[in-house]
Structure formats: structure tokens, C-alpha cells
Design a protein around this nucleic acid. Structure first.
Lengths: 122, 122
DNA sequence: CTGGATCCAGACGGATACTG
DNA sequence: CAGTATCCGTCTGGATCCAG
């Protein structure tokens, strides 16, 4: 509500905000995080619960999330192999902001689509 | 805190959340919106206040924001030409969720960077 | 002053095939 | 089961030059 607060976004020339955007703004990250919010899941379970994701992108995105400390990866020395993924505390802390964003999307996307449609036909 | 709420993110297979991410998750959108939160600005003023943005990307991003109804564009029939950009109500409504995200970033980016650094050297 | 047009390099992501 | 490797088209964004 107070304009001055946007300095949090603009503060360092956008480096901080872009650091986070670089991490969550790919096609699958938020979806994986939201799915893991339901609890620990294995690789195949994740793939089943996220329609349309390829093996490759699931692997890549999980690796990035693990590297950034948002997701933990536990390998069990069994045959057949079992690997479990879960949110770390940091990963869980991303849920509330993500929900805020989702709320905004649900509220405003219809208007945006309409505006876009009106803009196109001209 | 309640896990069931993540259905807002996962709901439609991620289409809604991705619709918004597709709009704000490019390199400059949030920065432009945050800058315009301070009030109406002209093209050159925007370029000056957003370090590092090229003419091309400023133009492109502003066009997309205008098309989506987040930013209004007012052309004055003068010489030299003058064009003023401002947030629409929809555009302004994006600020609070953006701030939530920025808060998360400021809090967690250090930990993420540390985790990433630790992960690299192995 | 406010952009449009063009060229170009690199990142992103999908499909497919193969492996311990 | 849980990946890795490879190929390949698409999109993004930067640099530069030109124009009303």
C-alpha cells in the first residue's frame, strides 16, 4: 500500500528479486514444490502427480531444487533403488508467497486474458 | 501452513499459476511495475531508473504490460513526442504479492546462495 | 524523444534412446 | 526404479542501426 516499500524490489537494481525469479520462474519448479508440500514422494510418484512433465525436466528441476537447499534427496541402498524427495524448511517457507501469487493469479488472470484478447484484435 | 491450500497452485495442472509466471517471470517486468509504483513516468525516465535495461527490452516489456492491462500508455501529440506510462488498478494489485515474494527473497536468498556454493564444490 | 527492424548467441525445454 | 546422454527446435534478450 505504501509506495516506498517497493524499494524492496528495486533496492539493489533488482538483483535480489531476480535471484529468486531465476529459481522459481521456470516451468516446473513451483509445481514440484507445491506437490511436495503434501509430503515425501518418490521420483515416479512425482512424475505421476505432475501431468506433462518429462523425466528429463523432473530430474533437472529436482537437482536445482536440491542444490538450492529447497528439497532434500534421500537415496536408499536397496534393489530396486528408492529415492525420496521432500521439502526442506526453506522449501516449505516458499509455499506462503507462492500461494499469495496463486491467489493473485486466480483473481486477475481472467481480466488479463480479456485485456489481451481485446488488444490482439485490432 | 495447511497443505490442502496448495491445490490453488496445482489445481488445473499448473495452468493458472503458469499463466501468471509467464507474465512476471521475465527479466524486467517486476522491476518496471515496481518502478511505476512510484507514479507516472516517461520512457526515458524509466530507462534511467532501471539500470541495465536496453531500449529494446523496455519497449517490449512495456508493450506486453500494456497488452495485459497492467500498464496504461498515454501518448501526447507534441513535438518532441511524449509518452507516459502508469500502473492500472490491476497493475497496482500486483504490488502486494510481489512484495511478499521480495520479502521471501531477502530472507532466504542468502541461505540459498550458501547452499548452492556448498553444492558446487564437490 | 520514442521507439521499430535486424542480427545473433545462449538458455530452455521436449523427444528419444540408453544404463546401473 | 531412477536416472543419464544426445539431439534439436524455440524463445529470450543484448547490440546496433535506423526512423517518425
Amino acid at each position: 500500500m505504501e509506495y516506498e516499500h517497493t524499494c524492496m524490489i528495486r533496492g539493489d537494481g533488482g538483483r535480489t528479486i531476480r535471484a529468486i525469479l531465476d529459481r522459481i520462474c521456470n516451468k516446473w519448479t513451483l509445481l514440484i514444490v507445491a506437490t511436495l508440500d503434501g509430503g515425501t514422494l518418490r521420483f515416479t510418484e512425482l512424475q505421476q502427480q505432475i501431468p506433462g512433465i518429462s523425466q528429463r525436466m523432473l530430474t533437472l528441476t529436482l537437482r536445482n531444487l536440491e542444490r538450492d537447499g529447497l528439497v532434500s534427496r534421500t537415496v536408499f541402498a536397496e534393489v530396486p533403488p528408492r529415492v525420496e524427495y521432500a521439502l526442506t524448511p526453506t522449501g516449505r517457507s516458499l509455499i506462503p508467497p507462492a500461494l499469495t501469487l496463486a491467489n493473485w493469479a486466480i483473481t486477475n488472470v481472467p481480466a488479463i486474458e480479456a485485456s489481451r484478447a481485446a488488444y490482439e484484435q485490432r
